Simulated assay, not measured.
Amino acid sequence: MGRQPSPLFAPLFLALAIFVAAPAAMAQSEPLTVLVFHRPPYYVVEKGHHFGGFLLDYTKNVLDAARIPFRFEEAPPKRILKTLEEGAMAACAVGWFKTAEREAYARFSDPIFTGSPMGVAVRTDILRTLPHAPTADALLRPGMRLGLRQGFSYGDWLDAKLSEHRHAADLTVAENDQLLEMIARGRIDYTFIGPEEYAWLVSRHPELQKKTRFMALGGVPPETPRHIMCGKNVPPEIITRINEAIRTLPPPVALSNGHGNGRSRP
Score class of each variant (00 low, 15 high):
Ser116Thr: 12
Asp137Met: 13
Val122Met: 03
Leu148Cys: 07
Lys78Cys: 05
Arg102Gln: 05
Lys98Glu: 14
Met89Asp: 13
Arg166Ala: 15
Gly87Arg: 09
Glu164Pro: 07
Leu158Pro: 04
Thr129Asn: 07
Ala138Asp: 09
Leu84Asp: 00
Gly147Arg: 07
Leu162Phe: 10
Ala168Thr: 00
Ser109Asp: 03
Cys92Phe: 11
Ala121Asp: 00
Ser153Thr: 12
Arg141Tyr: 13
Ala133Trp: 10
Arg141Gln: 15
Glu103Asp: 03
Ile112His: 10
Ile80Asn: 09
Trp96Ala: 11
Ser163Asp: 13
Arg145Ile: 02
Leu84Gly: 02
Gly119Asp: 05
Leu158Cys: 04
Gly155Arg: 04
Thr124Met: 11
Thr124Tyr: 09
Leu130Ser: 08
Phe152Asp: 01
His165Trp: 05
Lys98Gly: 08
Arg123Glu: 03
Leu130Lys: 12
Ile126Asp: 01
Ala138Arg: 15
Asp125Gly: 02
Thr129His: 12
Leu139Glu: 03
Phe152Asn: 08
Gly87Pro: 00
Gly119Met: 07
Ala88Tyr: 13
Phe97Asn: 09
Ser116Ile: 03
Ala90Trp: 05
Phe108Cys: 04
Ala136Pro: 01
Asp159Trp: 03
Ala136Thr: 01
Ile112Asp: 02
Val94Met: 02
Tyr154Trp: 07
Lys161Glu: 09
Gly115Asp: 09
Thr124Phe: 09
Ala93Tyr: 06
Leu146Asp: 00
Gly147His: 07
Asp159Arg: 06
Tyr105Ser: 08
Pro134Met: 05
Met118Asn: 13
Ala169Thr: 01
Lys82Met: 14
Asp156Gly: 15
Thr129Pro: 00
Ala121Cys: 05
Gly95Cys: 03
Val120Leu: 04
Met89Glu: 15
Gln150Asn: 14
Val120Asp: 01
Arg79Trp: 10
Pro142Thr: 06
Leu139Val: 02
Ser109Tyr: 08
Leu162Glu: 02
Ala121Val: 11
Arg149Thr: 11
Ala106Lys: 07
Gly155Trp: 04
Lys161Met: 09
Asp110Tyr: 09
Leu127Met: 05
Glu85Cys: 07
Leu81Ala: 14
Arg166His: 14
Gly151Met: 04
Arg123Asn: 13
Ile80Ala: 10
Val120Ala: 11
Asp137Arg: 14
Ala160Asp: 12
Gly87Ile: 03
Thr124Trp: 09
Glu103Ala: 14
Tyr105Asp: 01
Asp125Gln: 01
Pro131Gly: 04
Val120Cys: 03
Arg145Glu: 01
Gly95Leu: 07
His165Phe: 10
Ile80Gly: 08
Asp159Gln: 02
Arg141Pro: 04
Leu140Ile: 00
Gly95Thr: 01
Gly119Ile: 04
Thr135His: 02
Ala104Arg: 15
